[in-house]
Design a protein around this nucleic acid. Sequence first.
RNA 1: GGGCGUGUAGCUCAGCUGGUUAGAGCACAUUCCUGAUAAGAAUGAGGCCACUGGUUCGAGUCCAGUCACGCCCA
Length: 1083
Amino acid sequence: MAQGKFKEVDNKVNFPRLEENVLDFWKKEKIFEKSLEARKDNERYVFYEGPPTANGKPGIHHVLARVFKDLFPRYKTMRGYYVPRKAGWDTHGLPVEVEVEKKLGFKGKEDIEKFGVAEFNKLCKQSVWEYVQEWERMTERIGYWADLENAYVTYDNKYIESGWWILKTLWDQNRLFKDYKVTMHCPRCNTSLSDAEVSQGYKDNVDDPSVYIRLRLPESEAVRLPFGPAAAQGLPVSFLVWTTTPWTLPANTAAALKADAPYILARPNEEQETYILAKDLAPKLFGEDGFETLGEAQGSDLVGFEYQPLFKGVDLYSQPVDVSAAYRTITDEIVELGEGTGIVHIAPAYGDLDVGRRAGLPTLFSVDLSGKVLEAFPQFNREFFKKADPHISRDLKERGFMWRMGRVSHTYPFCWRCDTPLLFFAKDSWYIRTTSVKSELIANNNKINWYPGHIKQGRFGNWLDNNVDWAISRERYWGSPLPIWQCDKTFKYECIGSVAELEQKVGRSLQELDLHRPYVDELTYPSPFAEGGTMRRLPLVLDCWFDSGAMPFAQVHYPFEHKEDFEPVHFPADYICEAVDQTRGWFYTLHALGTLVKQQPTFKNVICLGHILDGEGLKMSKSRGNIVNPWDVLNNQGADALRWYLYTANPPGEPRRFSQDLVSESVRRFLLTLWNTYSFFVTYANLDQPDLTTKVPVDQRPVIDRWLVSRLNALIRDVTDMLDRYEVTGPARAIEAFVDDLSNWYVRRNRRRFWKSESDTDKLAAYQTLYEALVTVARLSAPFIPFVSDEMYRSLVQVVESDAPESVHLCDWPVADTSLIDEALIKDTATVIRVVSLGRAARSAAKLKVRQPLLEVLVKPREASEGAGLTRFKQQVMEELNVKDLVVVEDGADIMSYNVKANFKLLGPKLGKQLGAVQKALGNLDGSLIAANLRNGQPVEVTLESGETLSLAPEEVLVEAKQREGYAVVEDGGYAVALNKTITPQLKREGLLRDVVRFIQAARKEADYQISDKITVFYRVTKDANNLASDLAEALSEPESVRYLQTETLSTAVSEGSQANPAAFTQDVELDGATLQLSLLKN
RNA sequence: GGGCGUGUAGCUCAGCUGGUUAGAGCACAUUCCUGAUAAGAAUGAGGCCACUGGUUCGAGUCCAGUCACGCCCA
């Protein structure tokens, strides 16, 4: 014997337990390490892990991301690439701080300062590791191979230092600068709120002022208006603006119009003033007939008019500002005509910063960070901004600027902590000037392969098109420190690019220093800008998105290390994968820094995953309590089941509903089918010990084997092609379809070849073909289902090839032998399967059970070319359908009735509207006659209702089979299968024999006999009906029938009578109303 | 409010460049097969292909609008 026995397969397989054992094997034998070691001199495949934050338990959506991340590194490893996978952890940021603040019961920054930044950051650092073990356990259990031991951590000094280097690089390029940034600010807590915090605090039905302000045009400006010299009738002209925040009016710098909207000069009845406002909104404001239109112009024609300032503008410190560019009309895309006047009051400091930038406006202020009106406006007495509203309104009214005052009810944000109304506030912030490389960002994006494709030009492309500079500084504590020091005399800045540089400045070693606040804040050095000046660090930290975006550089401490091999060994990435919410997060920050620092895309291929929804299609959230704990699934169905479900359920970009039932379905549909096939093979191979090393050449195997080989090689080809295009669902579904064919066609069709006692080439071919298919499927599915595939592979291969790799994950990816792909054979077999399926339907419809042999089946294929294939596999169809003969009939054969229809595809373009009439006329013709004509290649003449006669070529009409007397016919999709319903006495006896065989088999099993036990059979009809006794007697009078029955049931004798032996197994069975007593006795 | 995406059977999904009667799997009912058996096969029922309009001889498919849902942004 060429090989030993295969490991027994437990057909009551417990996948979770199997997986645990595989995990132990991987760990013990260091399979992951070996898979890397074996490829380490090969070409690199670069994968970047987007770092998660481990301060919460991992959920099912994390599993989703991880299994998609895992797939391609495993695949590429098998393809021969070296694929190191460094794990990483995101550790900084506001969410971490908020978590710790909550624990400590803090209300704001003051509490943190009081508590001590050093201690606070220590707690932050601890908290990010709170769930790290849970994460590692999940990561390992789902088979996500990553180097967790050497994971990068964003709070490491080395990691931070690489970030500093990037900033210094940008500083030297003049791309790091300070400007205002509008944030949602709580004046009581004196802090900015994150978007998440803001969205928690919105309140509806907030009562606020609603005021309409006159922005008056001086005479000199009014005459320039495009309405004509006399339009204003000599009356004063104002732009009319609307706002709900009077407190921002002292900060007003411009009035914005919509460029492509019509505006009018209007004079309301009873008023000695004229106003410019949007044409569409005038009736709403003045009443339908409440005004006179004096002129009309486009918004774009009303730009550049200087109006009279409402207040004298100042900066945040109440100092005068250069306002030469202010107090004029502009156009901007933010202007809409939904409400107000169509002219928007612009106060850049309090929300319209982008508008201000676009128009080159100065930034003026009216209130300070505590929400109080600035000293520059003493008339308002340093009041809180909301309280100042009525006073400001009254002041404007007294001075004639107020047109109308009222109240409005709308939605407004409040601080989630202290319930104070928030205000938009432009604060100093440090920016990366990403807009300076906007066209490069767009060009580089065009080089990226996005999956799904629409993200590229859609969500991500739009985001780049509307690129704004990236605000990277935060007034917080737990984060990478901003490496900018400022001179306390000249206020000049300096950016530090490395620890060594800083050491040189401060004149001592910093090797022991934690680069975080507050320690880094304590480092000062003499100013190079002014004698006696001191450089102090700005007390700011970096946006944690900067940390994660810097990951390609920082994870290898570039450029302080890996300077030589950085490209292309560590950069750029071949593949990344995260959920779709990262488009403006990690995907963007990676892309931006790659373009800024390396002038190229950071990643070449990206899969963008949709979110996981619950079984009802709702988003999973803690508050809804509909979160699925991954462990429930991992412990019940197992990791491979979960993985397979996630790969096959739907395209990765779309949101997916999740429920355990769906995972169970994927177990039954795929994993169990595969497992049963494997189990079948092992069971018989262990009995037969076939030689699997001396191959039977493929061309000497039976055609059904060649079909499977063909199908298998086509599968390898297709799966490889699709994976190379970063498709996931496609290849997984293709494997699933193959396994279905393997189990439900190949194995089912060939069972007898495995059972038979003689060990001939045919049997060997069957074993080898099935074996090759199973081993290849194990290898193809290894990246998808790493556990089950490895279990199968190891037990299948190690017995046969002693020098084979010890794990499927150390194997090479299969290569398709295209010379073995016989497309015609694959197609013919598909036709056979289709026809068999229809034949069964016909049997079922006519209530003719498959055990009952029938005389013949007539088959009309869809296309004539398929007839040859059917004839070729006549035997298979006859066996499957239990019929004595198969006849392929062509259109027109005088065996069925026919319906004739128009070929829409061909005739549509030719006939156009006539088509309907032609179809109707065809219906009136004699189908059989036409069909016969067509067979001879004759055209069809049709006469339309209109009297017109047309001649149709044979290919322009289609023929459909219809029911025929004496036959059970089923027709579907162009195929027709007709079973001859006649049952001759001979056929009836044959059917009877098969019934008896089946009953004996069932009895054998019930009696618990071994498959190989020989038996003696006694039978007796105890209640006769339908001539059972005589039919049976007659059937068993033929020696051939007796031989058939004995072979099938492994019986040495079959005789009529009862068996008194107490060891006998006796059973009564019902057969068409009769009762038959069977007694079995083991020899 | 804007951008992107999705809407096909009770559920999960296919449906290629428009073409004849829109398909699978699950679940349900009925039945069959059974030396893989906690498998397998068949049949049945179940569809205004979200809605409205348009283009076309012909629309699930293309166009426009509406509605619902999801994500991102405001």
